[in-house]
Design a binder for these strands. Structure first.
Lengths: 80, 80
DNA sequence: CGTAATTTGTTCGTATGTATG
DNA sequence: TCATACATACGAACAAATTAC
């Protein structure tokens, strides 16, 4: 699922994978995505890599992060 | 007692130190080891580091942890 | 019964050092 | 030199379980 060798950075692959899970309806609006540590487990990556992936998703406007709580799928997947 | 500079990770040093205290009979079977906050004070470390040290001791089969109570020295230090 | 204090569990924020390409 | 990636470590906030009052 994640290619640790290929040219695409891991954090981009992980961000894309999570985005796919959101668009597939596996991860629902206002509900949390897996925690950083869970992403570390699921994808076999370092925490810093998980954080960069989540940061990418924030920049894409797909999630919001709350300290001490987690990162949540935004209610409106892009809109005004 | 704890070397904050050397190559050995702090959490390993702290785990080793606690194990030594168990083997020396300072920390007795079925009795609690110092709480995470006490370890923070005693060793001048962060709580996360104390938790990683305790996790190591659990993996070594030396202690068991109970939520809201504490971490206890196992009755049988390895046996069948 | 409710409240507070203690203790472990979980989560994100940040910084540093190391290694690789 | 820079980006990527991992490991370590400290800090802060939030949460749940237990115990004392």
């Amino acid at each position: 699922m994640i290619d640790h060798e290929g040219p695409t950075p891991l954090y981009v692959q992980v961000a894309d994978a999570i985005q796919a899970r959101i668009e597939a309806g596996e991860l629902l609006p206002d509900r949390p995505i897996p925690s950083e540590n869970q992403l570390v487990q699921e994808y076999g990556i370092a925490r810093g890599t998980a954080r960069k992936a989540i940061q990418l998703l924030r920049e894409r406007g797909l999630v919001v992060t709350v300290v001490g709580r987690g990162t949540f799928v935004v209610a409106e997947p892009r809109q005004g």
